[in-house]
Design a protein around this nucleic acid. Structure first.
Length: 200
DNA sequence: GCGACAG
DNA sequence: ATCTTGTCGC
């Protein structure tokens, strides 16, 4: 599968626009009790999604499967969201951190937003590099501005943006706590399981 | 046409 | 993301 300029891309853009319209940027209410992080590692065409959670009972869940969709900037969700959803299974975290952007996206529909809307849970996107927007400093905060609107913040080398059911302030608060442990663990474990793959 | 472009 | 050697700095 190597689509490039297909009608499928336009269709997926339409899907993202519909999802973006469902986003709710209301402030998170109360302290999230269970916070999870999700990431994916690959071994060729096979992907391993890992979810790591903090809270009452810490837990790790994973899902493995062949990934048939290619990586296309702006359509990352098509490549990784399916496996991430499988790894999450019936989990309903109070907050899910996703490796990638939220509304700091061309159509305000990054993978964190897609997961947040589809699963109807609070999500925040944490990316290692910029996809869109410009970074503008204001009152000591480096905002990611898109079309004149603040859609996220940059702290160090990381970009944080709302996925769904969280406010920009919630995102700023999280960004001030350093790179999330659950994400670092999800990243580490996904690679561990990836390496243990074609063996045991 | 050219450059940019999450993972 | 993944591949992949050596090198710079704390």
């Amino acid at each position: 599968m190597k689509l490039e300029q297909d009608y499928l891309v336009n269709f997926l853009y339409l899907v993202q626009n519909v999802i973006a319209r469902q986003v709710n940027l209301a402030k998170l209410e109360g302290e999230p009790r269970e916070i999870c992080g999700v990431d994916v590692a690959y071994k060729g065409e096979v992907g391993v999604a890992v979810v790591v959670c903090d809270g009452e009972n810490q837990l790790v869940k994973k899902a493995t499967g062949r990934v048939g969709f290619p990586y296309i900037p702006g359509l990352l969700f098509m490549r990784e969201a399916p496996l991430m959803i499988r790894a999450l299974q019936d989990l309903k975290p109070d907050l899910l951190l996703v490796d990638g952007h939220g509304i700091a996206h061309p159509r305000r529909s990054g993978i964190a937003t897609v997961l947040g809307v589809l699963l109807n849970i609070p999500t925040i996107g944490v990316a290692k590099s910029r996809l869109v927007g410009e970074v503008i400093e204001e009152n000591g905060i480096n905002y990611v501005v898109l079309n004149g609107e603040k859609v996220g913040v940059k702290v160090g080398k990381y970009y944080y943006s709302p996925g769904n059911l969280v406010s920009l302030d919630d995102v700023i608060n999280l960004s001030r706590m350093g790179y999330p442990r659950v994400l670092r663990e999800a990243d580490r474990l996904s690679k561990v399981y990836r390496n243990d793959l074609k063996l045991s």
